[in-house]
Nucleic acid binder design. Structure first.
Lengths: 124, 124
DNA sequence: CTCCGACCTGGAGTGCGCTCCAAGTCAAGC
DNA sequence: GCTTGACTTGGAGCGCACTCCAGGTCGGAG
């Protein structure tokens, strides 16, 4: 069980140290990160795994507030799995609708690109 | 050639009247929208078509500042097609990378969902 | 003993993209 | 002539998600 400084955790997760502190303050983590005797944070593998999940949720556009709700559910322990599932399913819906929308807009933009390619290098 | 009030244009484009004014102020349109004698804006079909393109760029995550650059290029007229193409191609790259990233994160979330589905309704 | 660098905190600041407000104008209906 | 409602403007305000700052602590090296 390695335990990492905030700088190392930042590197591992791709977040900044600032953001790691901010997530903790804002209740996105399952609990306060452990401290070394010096007061410095020490991130465990479990911390990193959870932060990766948070990162996935954020990267797919889940608002901080919803991540916080999800974290609260997980923190509360067994018994609310159905609620967590609902939350994730609802998020999945949103993400898929958004993926479809972006893809469709991208196809339209591609069409425009094709026009410009024709214009810039005509018949060649 | 119909010409629409800002409320009608808002409905057509899915934007709010506020946003339409904001886009115009911020240089995202090709030129100032025409006015009725009363001073009220009148949107032409061309305006709506351009606004739809802006909407596509925005919906795929292009920052306002880049939309403004693109609008400026189009406004400047013929001769900079290669530059417009570059801008659109660069944007396309970004969007595709982002689509891939979101999809990949979504697959991981789906995995988590499957686990919860198993837990909530164990073996059917 | 001093310095350095990594970390700590509460709180302020930033950038983005809207979103709204107050006060005013205009045309139409009563 | 008065009211109503859709619009106008410049500028302020907001929500989000960080991002940074000032001032302080701590442990180790020289």
């Amino acid at each position: 069980m390695t335990s990492l400084s905030i700088a190392e955790a930042a590197e591992q997760t791709g977040l900044t140290a600032h953001t790691l502190r901010y997530y903790e303050r804002d209740g996105l983590l399952l609990h306060s990160v452990e401290r070394a005797p010096s007061g410095h944070r020490r991130y465990t593998d479990d911390d990193l795994r959870w932060i990766q999940m948070v990162t996935r949720l954020r990267a797919t556009g889940m608002p901080i507030r919803d991540v916080r709700r999800y974290a609260a559910l997980v923190r509360d322990g067994d018994g609310n799995e159905a609620e967590r599932l609902d939350l994730l399913l609802a998020h999945r819906e949103v993400v898929e609708r958004q993926l479809a929308e972006v893809s469709s807009h991208l196809r339209a933009i591609d069409h425009k690109i094709a026009l410009y390619e024709h214009k810039v290098a005509p018949s060649a």
